[in-house]
Design a protein around this nucleic acid. Structure first.
Lengths: 225, 225
DNA sequence: TGGGGTATTAAGTTATCATTAAGTCTCTGT
DNA sequence: ACAGAGACTTAATGATAACTTAATACCCCA
């Protein structure tokens, strides 16, 4: 995760397309991983944790839409950008794709120029809103580098702890219900007990050493300095 | 992803059915959660607080009817819509289902079109008040964030206190009978004395510091600034 | 002025959370 | 593949806030 450039995964069953897109993205400074079918796409996505995933709708093993659905059901890929490629200039498919949780949609034949501008646009949008460094008083949370600082002292949080803190800190003062936390941090399908949240909260409080998470009994937790 | 729509939980042990219904509901803008047996259905229902629950009658772990009974015994699910799915075209089952507290009943094989129209009809029938932020003069009540503000000062209310205030504030000027309050805030099953309401009212008045709840002797309370 | 209601207070009761420790899972490097 | 470390989850217990009740004081009106 040291590369300055974003990581992109491209999944398409046509080697030519893969080659063209990879070449263009690499030229722009992106790090590129490729896959030739749906299953491979899922596997590489999990392994490489790309920032953007480009999915051909028509692929062997699993279609792009299916891959997208699987990915979106996992917390790790809730925020990942997804673009669909399709030869079908079908309005229905387009809508279906976007509803599945895709961020954009590019129809074949792909113009490298158009494609690149779309990709860049998505990342620009992302920078403004989603993944951003939080600075609240003497506390800094950098989700990209996975680093937390209090008064310039680095603090190491485990993954779940980090995600939990980041979630709360994104909207200071707002109370997050336990259910909300479970959905956002653990995902829809994972079933864990309520006490699990408590324990993570405790570890965060302990490691940070500052009292920034408030309990709202019977409701949930909120971030507050 | 960004769906503002209602949340629907579907429980069925046949993956195909889940897939079809989920796809159709998603297309209509509903947010969908799935479960593959009775126990999982209960767990997800509790966690996600869906607006509608679709239950297959024949499921492992717990049947749809059993799940329904458990849910209906809890105040949180008194108002939740429930639809039964069943392959048994049995009049008896149908009646038993409706008596258990289901709102509708769809027999398999399910026609997506029919199913959707039933679901839409149910929601149309339901005059559920939206969960929205209330702003009345210098008082702000945000039920989603569980926050109350008076003149920009945050005030912490306990859960019951909050729910009670929110109920009254939803219809300013309207008098709520004690029984009405008990049903809405405590649920039909819970039996608590009348004085309990008084005590909560008192705490709200005390914490808010402003006189916004008026007593109507022999009748109930109303919100009024 | 007494009765039917409500307000207030304090004291019980319960539900929920914090904490700790121990068990299970996962990843990593050899 | 294996061991070890750290991450994650669960279970058990103690602590505390939320909730309920009960007892008493109050108020208004026939």
């Amino acid at each position: 995760m040291e590369t300055k450039g974003r990581k992109v995964l491209i999944a398409d069953d046509e080697p030519d397309i893969l080659e063209i897109l990879k070449y263009n993205l690499s030229n722009e400074g992106y790090e590129v991983v490729t896959a030739k079918d749906g299953d491979e796409a899922l596997e590489k996505a999990k392994r490489h944790q790309p920032d953007l995933i480009v999915l051909d709708v028509m692929m062997p093993k699993k279609t792009g839409v299916e891959v997208c659905q699987v990915l979106r059901s996992q917390p790790a890929f809730k925020e990942t950008l997804i673009i669909f490629l399709t030869a079908v200039n079908d309005e229905g498919t387009q809508i279906k794709g976007l509803e599945t949780g895709a961020d954009d949609y590019v129809s074949k034949p792909v113009s490298p120029k158009v494609f690149l501008s779309r990709v860049n646009a998505l990342f620009r949008r992302l920078n403004k809103t989603e993944v951003k460094v939080l600075k609240i008083d003497n506390l800094t949370i950098d989700p990209e580098r996975f680093i937390i600082q209090v008064d310039d002292n680095d603090i190491v949080l485990a993954k779940k702890e980090f995600e939990l803190l980041y979630l709360l800190a994104l909207k200071p003062g707002r109370v997050f219900l336990r259910n909300e936390i479970l959905n956002q941090v653990w995902g829809n399908d994972v079933i864990v007990g309520d006490r699990t949240i408590d324990v993570h909260i405790r570890k965060i409080r302990q490691k940070l050493g500052i009292d920034c998470i408030t309990t709202v009994k019977g409701v949930g937790y909120k971030f507050e300095l």
